[in-house]
């Protein structure tokens, strides 16, 4: 078993209005960052897990996203998995 870290990013779907993002965009404009075209606010979640291999890790993290980490009605998710390089086998 290897310890890996899944870096999950959850974002509001493009069709979903994101008033948080709009408010941040207005704040940036107030600070003079007028080149800002759009801001979307989402969530970043790190999940450390043990898996036999990367394919198993991807499958498990995908299931976690579908069942809990993201709400599929209003949110999209994507993730990447990094090796932590630690062998957890005793």
């Amino acid at each position: 078993m290897k310890r890996v870290v899944a870096k999950v990013i959850v974002t509001p779907k493009p069709v979903v209005n994101d008033p948080q993002g709009l408010t941040v965009k207005q704040g940036l404009a107030t600070l003079g960052f007028r080149e800002v075209e759009d801001v979307r606010v989402g969530k970043y979640i790190e999940v450390s897990l043990d898996a036999e291999n990367m394919s198993e890790a991807r499958e498990r993290v995908e299931a976690m996203c579908r069942q809990l980490l993201a709400n599929h009605v209003i949110e999209d998710f994507r993730f990447e998995i990094d090796h932590e390089g630690r062998d957890t086998r005793r």
Binding site: V16, N17, P19, Q20, T23, N71, V73, I74
Partner: peptide
């Protein structure tokens, strides 16, 4: 909604 007893989801209102 989260439990699936009602369809859909809730988002923040436009005015926050």
């Amino acid at each position: 909604c989260e439990a699936g007893l009602l369809p859909g989801a809730l988002i923040r209102n436009a005015s926050l």
